[in-house]
Design a protein around this nucleic acid. Structure first.
Lengths: 235, 235
DNA sequence: CAATTATTCAATAAAATAATTGAATAAAAT
DNA sequence: ATTTTATTCAATTATTTTATTGAATAATTG
């Protein structure tokens, strides 16, 4: 009888414990929150700028950030009225990446949607980290980061230059035509670099797109440079 | 205008894509489903046996398995009326482990609950994989797997012997008293090995508990032995 | 061929989650 | 001291998710 009761209680504790783990998984279980996580994997952001990047209303973004905060997936620091959000640690991005890879391996619908997103992504114009490595020796190579400036300063491939996509058309003259250009952005589902490659290609440049983004580059232990927070631009 | 519309459409596709990834995360977002995943990480199971192990009703277990199946976290094979479920690949357990580690790192409630579950787990009687390695040379060591037989045959530490916990009291004579015993089970939140260590200890054995379970051992690439499916016991 | 067994399905009621809207708060700027 | 700005909160409605119960299905066994 006492033994049965002990078993009962143990089962109850374990249920509560797994309920807590489930809360963490649930925090990843929303398209909007995954979008926020993807952006926060690039840089610390304020609620308003984050909402703008994610194309979600500010109030809704704030609510989702609250959910993420409750299970400690994100942290806030406050500077006056302004709240700066960032991922708690590298494990958050890693977990998102694992979920992403599960989907890529097993889910046909994901395959279909990814291909629609990549309609005009030419596989010939893509390059993996591995294939880039030997080319890094040549100094005739330009590595171009087309993410928003704030993301670049928060961490970029060492040696890369920063021209955010919206500014690229006006700043083409800054790029020498006789050097190969390698463009990268946030990750496999970000199309900033696709658009940059198309633009460069149309203007007679020899440009390729890195298959993965900065967070994946960092996770693989490849060289990243960044600016201390105090020196970051406002927006 | 056409550009705006293109942006619109891209946003829509990306939303749908992330919705798919969210479905996968949601599948991990239930205490009961995590319990099922934890058990399926040990071995293939039928619905009924799985329900029994997880202490969930059969109908409810079947429903949760359906959810897991829909996002391809589990696979079924059928043999007559009997359905055998198993995890689709190693990535499922890895993802669960990442979520578990996130919780352990950041969630105080999880810490509190784990400690209640481990009330009578003596840290002195625990040993890590790393610390076990040098001891493996001594052949005076007995490695004891106290999980259900089906889990043992599906994969166990090479050299281990199998005595399921419920049978242990009656089978103590099989264990030589002058050899150290290392007991293991499903993982850090399984208490089968705690109970075994307590029993052995009370009977004059020198027993310790492995901190992690078989799935973690396998994931680290340590030596595992198993029996082909056809040779597995029925229950 | 009836009975048994393992699994799934359908219906239900309760609970949790989502996005929108508009208001509240509180620091900073005028 | 007002006004502006960034963020959060509260209320609402719609939707989704959950566990239970009891029935349906379909392969085996007697």
């Amino acid at each position: 009888m006492a033994y049965e009761q002990e078993e009962e209680e143990e089962h109850e504790i374990r249920s509560q414990l797994y309920e807590q783990f489930a809360l963490i998984a649930k925090a990843f279980g929303s398209a909007r929150r995954l979008t926020l996580i993807e952006i926060l994997a690039q840089a610390e952001y304020t609620v308003e700028r984050l909402a703008e990047e994610a194309e979600i209303s500010v109030a809704n973004t704030s609510q989702h950030l609250k959910t993420l905060r409750e299970v400690r997936l994100v942290k806030v620091r406050r500077d006056g009225v302004v709240a700066y959000y960032r991922l708690t640690d590298e494990g958050i991005f890693q977990t998102w990446q694992m979920i992403r890879e599960l989907g890529e391996r097993h889910n046909a619908e994901i395959d279909r949607l990814a291909n629609r997103l990549w309609l005009d992504r030419d596989p010939q114009l893509s390059i993996s980290f591995e294939d880039l490595m030997p080319l890094l020796e040549e100094d005739s190579l330009i590595i171009l980061d087309v993410r928003p400036e704030r993301e670049f300063w928060s961490g970029h491939i060492t040696g890369a230059i920063c021209i955010p996509l919206p500014e690229l058309p006006g700043r083409l003259p800054e790029i020498s035509k006789n050097r190969k250009v390698i463009v990268y952005c946030r990750g496999p589902y970000s199309t900033l670099s696709d658009k940059a490659v198309r633009l460069l290609d149309a203007n007679g440049y020899h440009a390729k797109r890195l298959e993965l983004g900065l967070p994946e580059w960092r996770l693989q232990g490849l060289p990243v440079s960044s600016q201390p927070r105090e020196m970051l631009p406002a927006s």
